[in-house]
Amino acid sequence: MNTINNNFIPDLSVDIAGMHLKNPIMTASGTFGYGEEFKDVVDLNLLGAIIVKGLSLAPAPGNKPPRIVETACGMLNAIGLENVGIEAFVRDKLPFLKKLSTPMVANIYGKTIDEYVGLAARIDDVDGISAIEVNISCPNVKAGGVAFGVDPRSVYQVVSAVRKASQKPLIIKLSPNVSDIATIAQRAEEGGADALSLINTITGMAIDIHTRKPKLANITGGLSGPAIKPIALRMVWQAVNAVKIPVIGIGGIVSAEDALEFFIAGASAVQIGTANFMNPSATIEILEGLTRYLKSNNMATLRNLYGTLVL
């Protein structure tokens, strides 16, 4: 039986995609707004990194409601990437984020490679943005609406194009709606990614049996929350084994125990998404849980746990 040694503060820090993070807890895009919304309930300076809502070149109105529906241990969303647009973000949202000691990552998405490039170029020399996370789960309008992230070739194209447009560290956020995540991960690495993050939501659907209509106006939506954690963990593990760059785990993490599974699978950091809706202070509680775990196991650094899956 281990006794808890209170005389040391475990080291949770990690260097990832050119950023030095106090700890590996990041907020998942679309679940933490632009950060400021949480300032009353979360000490934002304690977080590893803040990733903001997905940004597009022009403001985007989003999809028709209903946009969300709860399902067993999860939720479906079809928000339609509503956001204020990159200009309003830089003008109105960034000044608050810049005052924090926590690095901020801008999440971007486009409908064409040109839009991705335009976004990356626009923020390349903007202070206060520590890295760019590229959401490639969006439909490629020039390829008949198939998501960039499901075709290894377009993954390579979009990543290498964004790479050329920006000096900032690039995190490529992968879609889980693919049959071979390892190949996709490798194409993103070859294209010049500094890190990968996965998973985005899994496409799903729910039907109202009384009206026989889909519960979402968009018909399908993205599943998130605890329901997707086993799939996320499997994909993170496969990606870790396929590439050399760091992998950030996302999907259904609501507790420190959930996060620890991802670290053992080889993730270098994690993102907290739907858990922020269940409990707005989830990120901080997870952090505290990680510290407790390390102390009770007499581990000085969390990094020693990374990729220690026993097979």
Partner: peptide
């Protein structure tokens, strides 16, 4: 009333059209 996920303006799920 609408269905809500966050209640604090971050999920954008409670939109009226």
């Amino acid at each position: 009333e609408t269905i809500m996920a966050c209640g604090m303006g971050v999920c954008l799920g409670c939109a009226l059209d």
